[in-house]
Every structure is written in structure tokens, then in C-alpha cells.
Design a protein around this nucleic acid. Structure first.
Lengths: 358, 358
DNA sequence: TGGGGGGTTGAGAGCGCTCTCACATTATCG
DNA sequence: CGATAATGTGAGAGCGCTCTCAACCCCCCA
């Protein structure tokens, strides 16, 4: 037979064992008030003796809470797990949720049919809220499904679909991509470089776009024409960076600095530069973005923009938990944290980390 | 108010709308037989019209199925997300589960108190089964909690606690660590190297231990005394590899080949070798293990042992779904896949990938 | 000694769903 | 054409829990 799922004891059983009613056991289990200390102890002992654990589905059915939160990751070709950036953010989320006794459901939306499956899940009340990462710009507004299901939702990164910017109720957490990119570019210019180029990620992602804008901001401020600065785009990967860099070198052999949209791209750029016989940083200075672990391994170690990725994850989780309402710690005996101030998007700081590449 | 959770329509509502009973709607929703085509269509229309989605908790309460599986990752300092190996495995799991309409609950057990929290969750019937990764050897048999809760469980990697080897019912999926390590070492020996050394991971992890054994197997087969081969251990990280390599060089300056227990360690070893002025592969040949993406970026690109990590994840998921019983596709209308052959551990093949480092 | 009042406890009604079983309807056959 | 089977549908009993509300007990004060 397919696994002999031994029947777990119910509230009823504990009540009988302790000689009290179901209601009393429920009170004890949930830490509710109004139970004599003596009875409370007796019930506790019975719970222990029978190895009772409350049935999640039954509880959830009446409380309308699941104590779980979905992390939806919408991306055509799931780089999620290979992308250390994401991984760290996910870790931050996981840790924060664990602190509040909340489970994390991971939902990967790689293809169109996943969209439907996930919508169904969200509508089915599996979770109390949603953390939404939608990395691509095309397709149906990803995350609309969660909002439509009436679930509290927090976005990772600034949502980029048409109209998103106008919606003041949209909650998201993002790094200061624009400011960070500006910082990095100013560093290049401060080094005396006058022919900087940019390697951008997919411009349908707001992070890539914002970083490009930051790059241009710095040029403008320094009196250079952003439109004249060479730019090439690709995916946020080492391969993408390598290809874009090669392309850039072909069209603009005179460039003396490169702002890469991500560390992975920067690593690729280093490869392409080496292949072209350029020295880094002597001939071409390179800065990256993200400060991944691999940034410090690179040869030469990358100057890059650091974001507190794990912290962003934690903030996302916290924001969501606040939206959900009361923090479901210990079965609800905690204080109900009403949303005093209206929640609003959070932009976290980005800092320059100077290493050898620039 | 904390989020106006708009009341979703219930079965009852759909039944009223379609002019049938709840039972009939249930049958239609679950694809059950015995409903006239005309009625079926009418119900479908009502479902559509009201935007009905079955309540998960209620269904789960009666079916005793949740359609979710927990991935428990027990590790003191969660490298989970930074470790690309894991990430790929998780992706494989996620994809396979998605194919079977099963959700993935991620549970990180970083500290002792998490253990208790997770046990509670598992016992509460949140999930139908457990995929268990317990990377450290110490502490209470991690995973015992899942087994104790009577949940179908599959382990990632060979469980290492005392007695695990004797338990024939223990299900796990592992790479052929021993065989792969032997392959890699034989490659080094085949290159004419006669003073190979090993960099091992934490030997309380079976994967590290198995790889060391594989290394020794190759030496023995080649007529070399394994006990004479220099060995240093550390964590499965670049830092660990760097430190261990430095230590090895100090004690055994004459070594001409290194088998590293992981690619990350190998990358660290490359750094240490460079710092010591050794050329790779001329002075010292290096092989790694895992074939991470970074293995091909390394300088020189690493010769390493490739495992089908994503495939391992898929197999784990498949094994678990089979244990759980019938594959819960489309609400159970699928064939019940009884365990015809008794399930048994799966060891996947490991292949050598030759690049420049050896 | 009797009547509040506060603190404890239990009875019972659901939460939304599935599933069994009895009933209604129509098809099938002697 | 009535008996029997096959098919379609509905009534109702839970699944295990929470939560309201009424009942209860004991103590205090008049």
C-alpha cells in the first residue's frame, strides 16, 4: 500500500486523555488565556504523551490563515538558482520568514502553462501573501495574478509593466540601481577615463534600465554626452558580457573604461578584454554591479557596487508580513501589527567597493 | 483593516448558480465520471463565471493530501543558496514537482531551534513527503523527524549517521562520488604524476568521505600506498581549498597533482598554487569535482568530474512522488502508481570532463 | 445566607470540501 | 410491458479545528 500514513492523534483524543473538552485543549495549544494553570499543565502533558500536533488543514480552514507565503519567480529560463544574486535574496527572505514561523513556498514560473497553475494555487488559498519576482518585461503582467487573487503582494525589484509606475499602492523593494550605477561611473570618470562604455543587461528589466540611466546621469553631470557613449546589451551572464564586450571593442576600439551592468557580465568582459589583448585596469578600467562572491575572485578582483541583497530579502518579507496583518507568531497570540503608516516602496542603498579592476 | 480578503466563492455558490448539488460540482471540478455532458458544461460555465477556485484547506482536510512536498535543508551555516551545486539540484526538483502539480516548500534548518519548528510543520500535515538534505554529520539524525512523522522521505546524498548504512528502507539519491573521484585520480596518474595529493571536504559528509575513498582506490590500483598520499581537509569552499592547499604545500612541497574534493576547493587551490609560484598544470595538475559553471571560468579552466545534478534532483522528486503513492495529477484522476518494484537508492553516473588544469 | 461578579469550562455550530449511499431516471432485455 | 440494470444526481455525514456563548463554579460582600 502506498505508505501507511499512521493516523495522528486529534484534538479530541487529547481532550479525552486529559479529561477536558476540545475547546480547552485548543486554548492551551494556542496559548489562549482563561485556563487554570493546573489544567493547562495536565493538557500539556497529554499533548506530550500522545505526540499531538495540530492538523494544519483543519486549522487553516477556520482561521483562513496558512502561515505560508509564496515566492513566485517568473522567468522564462530559470536562472534563479544559478544566479547568486537571487540566491542571497532568497536566503534573506527565508530567514526573516522563519523568524515569524512562516513557511516559504517556492513557485517557479518558467513557462506559460506554469502561470495558470500558479494562479490556481494562489486563488486556492494556499498562502497568505506573495513575494513576486518578475524578471522579464513581456507577457501578461506577472504578479497581476496575485493581486487579482486579493493577496497581499510585495515585488522584488521595481515592477516594469506599463502603468506600474503610476500605481501608488504597488509595494516593492529595490536596490538603488540608478544611484549605484552613477557612483560606479563617477569612479571611472574620477580615474581620468574619458571614453567610458556601458554593458547593459536586458533593457526590459527595470534594474538594467535603471543602471543604464545611472551611467548616463554620471556622464551628463561630467559634461559628456550620454548619447555618444558606446553601449551594448545582452543577458546578465558571463556569456552575455563577453559577447557584448567583444562587440563594443569592435565598434569602439578606443574605449578606456567599462561599466558592466552586473558582475557576471563584468567577468565576461574581462575575458573578452584579455582575448583582445587589453590590460585591466591599465588600458581599460572595469566596474561591475552586485558584488557577488565571484567579483572578488575575478582576475583582477572587480571594483563593483555592493547591495545588501540579503537585507533586501528580509525587508521584502517584513513588508509582506506587515501587509498580511498580524504577525502570525505562536498561533496569533502576538500583537496585531496594524499598518500604522501606509507601506511604501523601499529603495536600499548601494555602495561602491573599490578593488583592482578600476 | 489588515487586507480586505474578499470572500471567494464556494462550491455551494457554484452549485446554486448552476442549479445542481455540491456533489455534482465537486465531480466536475475533480474530473470525476458520471456527469452528463450537458450538466458538466453548465457547471464549467458557472465555475468560470464566478471565478471559483477550490479551497485548498478544505479539500486537504478530507483528502489528507496537500499536494506539497517539503525540501528540508539541514545545515548549520546555510550555504545552500550560495552553493551552485545545490541550486541546480533544487531546480531539478522544482521542475519535476511542477510537472506533477506539486508544490515545493523550502525549509531551512540552520539552527537547533529550527529543528523543532520544522518537526512541528511536518507533523502538522503540511506536506505529503519530504526531500531531506542533511549536510552535516553531527546532531540528532536529521531526517529522523520526517521518518518519525511517518512521511515518505527521500534523502539527497547518502545519509551518514550511524546505522544508516544498515537500513535497507532508506531511500536516497547520490552521485557516484567514489567512482568519480577514482576516475579523476586515475586521470592524474595517467598523466604520469606520481605524487598526488587530496584536498578533502568535511569528512563528516559522506560525499567528502566517498570522494576520498575513490582517490585512495585509484592509488591502490596503481600500486601506490594511499596512506602515504598527503591529504588536507577543509570546508567545500574556495577559502577552505586555499587554506588546505597552502598547508599541503608546506608539508609536501614535492607534490605534482591535486585532487580537489570540489570545484570551489579547486579554485581556492589554484589561488594558493599561484601564490606559491607553481604553474598549473605544468608543475601541479589539478582536478576538481562537480563541474560548476565557475569550473570553466577558472584560470586555467578546470578538469573536473561532472555530475548530472539537475537530473539527481529530478530523480529525487520522482522517487518521492512514487513513495507518496498515486501521482496527484488533476485531483487524483490519474492512475494510482503502486510501488511495483520496491524503491531503492539511486546512484547516478559521474563523468570526467578534461580541460586545461590537468 | 443569598445574590452578584469574575474567572473557567464545555456544548455546538460551522469552515468548504469529498465521498458514500440512497434515490431518481432512463436504457435494456426477457 | 414490467422487471432489472445502468447511469446520473442529491442528501448528508463527516474531516479536525476554532470560536462564540451559555453554563458553571467559587469567592466576596451585604
Amino acid at each position: 500500500m502506498p505508505t501507511d500514513r499512521s493516523p495522528r492523534p486529534t484534538l479530541e483524543a487529547v481532550a479525552a486523555h486529559a479529561g477536558v473538552s476540545r475547546a480547552t485543549v485548543s486554548r492551551v495549544v494556542n496559548g489562549g488565556p482563561g485556563v487554570r494553570a493546573e489544567v493547562r499543565e495536565r493538557v500539556r502533558a497529554s499533548v506530550q504523551a500522545l505526540g499531538y500536533a495540530p492538523n494544519f488543514a483543519a486549522r487553516s480552514l477556520v482561521t483562513r490563515r496558512t502561515g505560508a507565503v509564496a515566492v513566485v519567480i517568473a522567468e522564462p529560463e530559470s536562472r534563479v538558482f544559478s544566479d547568486p544574486f537571487f540566491s542571497r535574496q532568497l536566503r534573506g527572505i527565508g530567514r526573516e520568514l522563519a523568524c515569524h514561523d512562516t513557511q516559504l513556498l517556492l513557485m517557479l514560473q518558467e513557462r506559460a502553462e506554469d502561470h495558470e497553475r500558479i494562479s490556481r494555487y494562489l486563488a486556492g488559498g494556499h498562502v497568505d501573501g506573495v513575494l513576486m519576482f518578475s524578471l522579464h518585461g513581456q507577457g501578461p503582467p506577472p504578479g497581476a495574478q496575485a493581486l487579482a487573487a486579493g493577496l497581499p503582494t510585495v515585488f522584488g525589484g521595481r515592477p516594469g509593466w506599463p502603468g506600474a509606475a503610476e500605481d501608488p499602492g504597488l509595494l516593492y523593494v529595490d536596490a538603488d540601481n540608478r544611484g549605484g550605477a552613477r557612483l560606479a561611473t563617477e569612479h571611472l570618470l574620477g580615474l581620468g577615463r574619458r571614453r567610458p562604455a556601458a554593458l547593459t543587461g536586458p533593457l526590459d528589466q527595470t534594474s538594467a534600465l535603471d543602471r543604464l540611466h545611472g551611467f548616463q546621469d554620471a556622464l551628463t553631470a561630467a559634461g559628456l554626452a550620454p548619447s555618444r557613449a558606446p553601449t551594448a546589451g545582452g543577458s546578465f551572464t558571463a556569456e552575455g558580457g563577453e559577447r557584448a564586450m567583444a562587440q563594443l571593442l569592435e565598434h569602439e576600439p578606443g574605449l578606456d573604461a567599462v561599466f558592466a551592468g552586473s558582475d557576471l557580465m563584468a567577468v565576461g568582459a574581462l575575458r573578452a578584454l584579455r582575448a583582445a589583448g587589453r590590460r585591466v585596469p591599465e588600458d581599460v578600467a572595469v566596474v561591475g554591479f552586485d558584488d557577488l562572491e565571484s567579483a572578488s575572485w575575478a582576475d583582477p578582483p572587480l571594483t563593483t557596487v555592493r547591495q545588501d541583497v540579503e537585507g533586501m530579502g528580509r525587508i521584502m518579507a517584513r513588508l509582506l508580513l506587515r501587509q498580511i496583518g498580524d504577525v502570525p507568531a505562536d498561533g496569533g497570540r502576538g500583537v496585531t501589527a496594524r499598518t500604522e503608516e501606509p507601506a511604501s516602496p523601499v529603495i536600499t542603498e548601494a555602495r561602491l567597493v573599490v578593488r583592482a579592476s578600476a
